[in-house]
């Protein structure tokens, strides 16, 4: 089968562009694997020390200040910049809540850290009968397709 000159030219162009792109990859910065300075426990404000734009995410450091609004909406940040999260947080920090099987409520495992935002503090068994009707999507995010072993004990 004879390949048309146009396809050959396009393939050649794609190969040249790919090579050019690969050559530029080395110019793209890496985020550090770990934060270079030891951080104190508790919420941090990146902008206390950094005023400029974070090179790896191409976003201002101030966008990642851990305000209450940031903590409550951290899913938006984790879904786009998990590599930046990983410079300060071990994955096990996330796995206390986000995992396939949870052995105990995160607030029980971390009972010595009442300052951390944890789901289902107190008697949530009673509350979920109200909250589940009010906002089932909030249940679904964690329990819809995983981590629902305790749900199926009653919800059959």
């Amino acid at each position: 089968m004879r390949r048309s000159p146009l396809i050959s030219a396009l393939l050649l162009l794609a190969a040249i562009l790919s090579l050019a792109a690969c050559a530029q990859m080395k110019a793209l910065p890496n985020l550090p694997a770990t934060h270079p300075e030891e951080l104190s426990s508790g919420p941090v404000s990146c902008s206390e020390c950094h005023e400029d734009q974070q090179k790896g995410t191409m976003k201002p450091f101030a966008a990642f200040n851990h305000s209450r609004i940031f903590v409550k909406n951290h899913r938006f940040y984790a879904a786009t910049d998990d590599a930046l999260c990983a410079t300060c947080h071990k994955l096990s920090f996330c796995a206390d809540c986000h995992t396939n099987k949870i052995e105990m409520k995160p607030s029980v495992k971390n009972g010595d850290r009442p300052d951390r935002m944890m789901p289902h503090r107190g008697d949530y068994i009673t509350l979920h009968k109200i909250e589940g009707k009010l906002d089932p999507a909030s249940c679904y995010r964690c329990h819809g397709r995983t981590n629902n072993e305790r749900c199926v004990a009653c919800h059959r």
Partner: peptide
């Protein structure tokens, strides 16, 4: 209480992976 049933032991691997981190471009 997690997997249900009559068992005194239980457990889970939440994550376990090898990661190769390149020098550039995250």
């Amino acid at each position: 209480p997690v997997d249900g049933g009559d068992s005194s032991v239980g457990g889970a691997l939440n994550y376990g992976f090898l990661q190769y981190r390149f020098d550039h471009a995250n």
